[in-house]
């Protein structure tokens, strides 16, 4: 599946700024993409939206 489709499966955007909810999204992202995020990526608020997850993935994979 393409990256956008996988990200579209995630329950986003998150409501509020619950940092535990962000951890749960990080769990889902790692599971879907078989990657290991670093702590900065996990704690970053970008994981709260689809666009933010895509950006995180691009950076993580060295695409930007």
């Amino acid at each position: 599946m393409d990256r956008e489709a996988l990200v579209a499966e995630l329950p986003l955007p998150l409501a509020g700024d619950d940092d535990l909810a962000v951890v749960a999204i990080a769990v889902a992202v790692e599971d879907a993409f078989d990657i290991v995020l670093n702590d900065d990526e996990i704690t970053h608020a970008r994981l709260g939206t689809s666009a933010g997850v895509l950006e995180t993935l691009r950076r993580h994979l060295g695409e930007s």
Binding site: L20, V23, A24, V27, E30, V36, I42
Partner: peptide
């Protein structure tokens, strides 16, 4: 189990262990 696997990928992480609070 999903969380413990998440944690195990980097046991020294300062944030991964927070997942147990879920």
């Amino acid at each position: 189990a999903r969380l413990r696997s998440f944690w195990a990928r980097n046991p020294r992480s300062a944030v991964r262990d927070r997942g147990v609070e879920l």
